[in-house]
């Protein structure tokens, strides 16, 4: 129940989508974080056997992905970022079809579908056509199909994009439950999703791995970059030029800001304990170097 990614690179024409990425993913939820275009979906598609890669190796549950893609797929549940169902099929028919494709034994399939529909809270609408489903319902049906066949590895790519807050929370909780006995690889650019469910994370930016490991370790890396300060509103532009503003609150003529900066931006600025969102921004704005460059710098 593990995924070993070793020095995987992938290039689309002139664009280096992945650059020597090395990851070790074990049981539980593993969060893959990064801005749009960071290479998350490329990595997900590689792990889902959909996209070939140029160099490196991937081993899923002991099976080399290049040599035995079929075996990897047997142990895989995949929820793509963009996916769809045949609109005229009902939720039950959809799962029945995909279960058949996954070679779930017929005598077990019906019970599995019922159980999964209950798990994702869709049993009431099992006989409704998919074209009438909301975005959240589709996502839940998507996770249900990914779980068919009881895969040991679950790959979910941006699963909460477009969901309302309540659906997001419900979906995160569902992932938490599922991670108790399998590997769940969750890719997202929504920091809150990772923060809520995952302690093991990796951050990708521009195809390069910035960090991989416990989120606590990452928090240590961001120490000293996060500050809170209160300044008159007139100084907004000056602060914006000097720092990266994470958040701000206005009260009267004053404004309190949470910023990223290499040095204390104003004399009365106070150092703050970094959150995952701070770290994410720090990565995006190059406050934290990629793993390889950091090692080289040392």
């Amino acid at each position: 129940m593990s995924i070993e990614v070793t020095q995987v690179s992938k290039r689309y024409g002139k664009v280096q989508a992945l650059d020597n990425v090395t990851l070790s993913i074990n049981k539980g939820i593993f969060g893959l974080l990064g801005p749009n275009g960071a290479g998350k979906t490329t990595l997900m598609r590689i792990l889902a056997t959909l996209t070939p890669f140029d160099s490196g190796s991937v081993v899923v549950n002991g099976h080399d992905l290049q040599r035995f893609p079929g075996k990897v797929r047997q142990s895989l549940g995949y929820l793509p970022q963009d996916f769809g169902f045949y609109p005229d099929l009902t939720a039950y028919q959809t799962l029945d079809y995909i279960g058949t494709m996954k070679n779930v034994p017929p005598q077990r399939l019906q019970a599995d579908i019922q159980a999964l529909l209950e798990l994702v809270n869709l049993s009431d609408v099992a006989r409704r056509k998919v074209k009438g489903f909301s975005g959240g319902m589709r996502q839940r049906l998507g996770i249900a199909q990914a779980l068919l066949g009881d895969p040991q590895v679950l790959i979910v790519d941006e699963p909460t994009a477009g969901l309302d807050p309540e659906e997001r929370v419900r979906f995160r909780n569902l992932l938490s439950r599922l991670s108790s006995d399998r590997t769940v690889l969750l890719s997202t650019h929504i920091v809150g999703d990772i923060e809520a469910v995952s302690t093991n994370i990796a951050i990708l930016n521009k195809g390069r791995l910035i960090f991989a490991g416990q989120s606590s370790g990452l928090l240590d890396q961001a120490q000293g970059y996060v500050w809170e300060l209160t300044v008159p509103q007139s100084e907004w532009e000056k602060i914006e030029r000097q720092t990266t503003i994470v958040s701000s609150r206005t009260h009267g003529s004053q404004i309190t800001m949470r910023v990223l900066a290499h040095q204390q931006p104003t004399p009365d600025a106070q150092p703050e304990t970094p959150t995952l969102e701070d770290i994410y921004l720090a990565v995006v704005h190059d406050f934290i170097l990629p793993v390889s460059e950091e090692a080289a710098a040392k």
């Binding site: 959909l50 793509p80 996916f83 769809g84 169902f85 070679n103």
Partner: peptide, 18 residues
């Protein structure tokens, strides 16, 4: 375009018969 079903189907453990 609308349903992108093939993207999902391609990741299933299918062989040539499908």
């Amino acid at each position: 375009r609308r349903h992108n079903f093939l993207a999902l189907e391609l990741s299933l453990p299918i062989d040539f018969e499908v």
